[in-house]
Computed example of a mutant assay.
Amino acid sequence: MIKKSLTVLLTIFALSAYSQTYVGVKGGYTMSDIAFSPVQNTRMLFADGFDYGLVFKYFNLKYFGFQAELYMVNRGYRKPIDLAELGDTLYKRVNTYIELPIFMQVRFNLKLFMIHFNAGPYIAYLVQAREGDNSSGEYQMSNISINILRDNRIDFGVLGGIGLSRDFKWGTFFAEGRVGYGYGDMQKHTYTGMPKQSKAVFQSVNVGYLYHFGNNLK
């Protein structure tokens, strides 16, 4: 009994020697599209605001931990208004979500930098929708009412990414690239005139700063 207790205590001590918590902020940029079924002639959405939010990361092992975030992100798509034309006049739809991804993270020390790999699910809640077109030369966007019979408030899916970070005594800077795929449809297929599927496909880049608590994992 004493030996088992000592083993448990030593294990807890060993894990706590590697424990470290990070809290910080991030900002980034997302490029997105919607995969419709039946297929539509869509274009990727660019230049529609920056993502920003909070980051929480925890490691209790040297190479394995998890990361959670809470931030605002813009996703959507563009498509030609008249398919018979060359496609210079485009319709644009932009959805703004509050998103919560939760990652398992693996990282390795490259001396000057840490390289890390993230993978995990996300869930997002739609807070605003905008639409418009560039028939006047520039996009004229306006807010649209969210119809809960037509528009899905909840999106969910998977994310994966790779990044680099650098630890300093006063904090950590990181940069990362990600890809994601949504399993929730943007619009409900049961609503009249809506497609059978409308799933988000997106890529993002982001940078951030983290303040760390606990022991150094290097």
Rank of each mutant, 00 (worst) to 15 (best):
I162R: 04
E138F: 11
F168M: 12
G160N: 05
L159P: 02
N134S: 08
S136Y: 03
L149N: 15
E176L: 04
F108Q: 10
G161D: 05
R166W: 07
F103C: 06
G132F: 03
I115F: 10
R130D: 12
R107K: 13
Q140G: 10
R130F: 09
V106N: 11
I144H: 06
F113L: 15
R166P: 12
G180P: 02
I123H: 01
Y125M: 07
L110G: 13
G180N: 03
A129I: 05
G180W: 01
A175T: 05
N118Q: 13
A124D: 01
L149F: 08
D133S: 11
P121K: 13
Q105K: 13
M104P: 04
D133V: 09
E99F: 03
G137R: 00
I102V: 15
R150M: 08
F173S: 05
F168E: 09
R150S: 10
N109Q: 01
V106Y: 11
S136I: 04
D155K: 03
K169E: 15
L100P: 10
G157N: 00
G157P: 00
N109P: 00
N143I: 12
R107Q: 12
R107F: 03
R178Y: 06
N152R: 12
Y122N: 01
F117C: 06
F168D: 09
Y139V: 10
N147H: 07
I146S: 09
I162V: 14
T172S: 11
F117L: 11
G171D: 11
A129R: 15
Q140H: 10
E176R: 07
G163Y: 08
L126W: 02
S135T: 15
I102K: 05
G132Q: 04
V127G: 07
Y122Q: 00
I154V: 07
W170A: 15
P101K: 01
V158H: 02
E176S: 06
L100N: 13
L149H: 14
L110K: 13
Q140S: 14
I123K: 02
D167L: 05
G132K: 04
G171P: 08
A124L: 00
I146W: 08
L112E: 11
K169P: 11
G132H: 04
M114E: 02
A119I: 14
V179T: 06
R130G: 07
G177M: 09
R130M: 12
T172Q: 13
M141G: 01
Q140M: 11
N109S: 01
G163P: 09
F117N: 04
R150T: 13
G157W: 01
N109L: 01
D167K: 07
I146A: 06
L164F: 14
G161P: 03
N118G: 15
D167P: 00
Q140P: 09
L110M: 15
M104D: 07
N109C: 00
F103P: 04
S142Y: 06
V158E: 04
G171N: 13
G132S: 06
F117G: 12
L159M: 08
G180Q: 02
L100K: 08
L159K: 14
I144M: 11
E176Q: 12
N109M: 01
A129K: 14
G157K: 00
G157T: 00
I115G: 13
I144N: 05
L164Q: 09
G137F: 00
L110Y: 11
M141S: 02
A124K: 00
L112D: 10
R153N: 04
